[in-house]
Design a binder for these strands. Structure first.
Length: 107
DNA sequence: TCCTTGACGGAGA
DNA sequence: ATCTCCGCCAAGG
């Protein structure tokens, strides 16, 4: 067990994602900034991609800045995320977009 | 060490 | 609204 720089960043990211309230979403870049890591949107995606399947962290509340799920439509991951969001009342249009005006988390 | 690969983002066209 | 083209950061080859 070591505390590498990236591990510290990962903790910051987990903590921030945990703060997203149910029924709301946040973009990768937004999470990065709130975590004190500007310009690290890709890192957020990377960190979330390494979460264990049974993680309690609400990774599915994180989408891209275009208001879309960052997985290929029809993919297993896409459907899983879509389902979790729908279960929380987050609406996704037929074209796969989420209205950020309405559902984006603004702390 | 250099190059490629991503759950990214913003500016243009 | 859609599609490039870059810039960014860390990991893996």
């Amino acid at each position: 067990m070591s505390n590498t720089s990236t591990e510290l960043k990962a903790r910051q990211i987990w903590q921030t994602v945990n703060a997203i309230p149910a029924g709301k979403v946040a973009s990768y870049g937004q999470i990065a900034k709130l975590a004190g890591l500007p310009n690290c949107a890709r890192l957020v995606g990377r960190v979330l991609s390494q979460l264990p399947k049974d993680s309690k962290i609400p990774w599915y509340r994180v989408i891209n800045s275009q208001g879309k799920i960052s997985f290929p439509p029809e993919s297993e991951a896409f459907l899983a995320q879509q389902g979790r969001l729908n279960a929380e009342g987050v609406e996704i249009s037929k074209t796969g977009r989420i209205n950020l005006r309405q559902f984006q988390w603004n702390p």
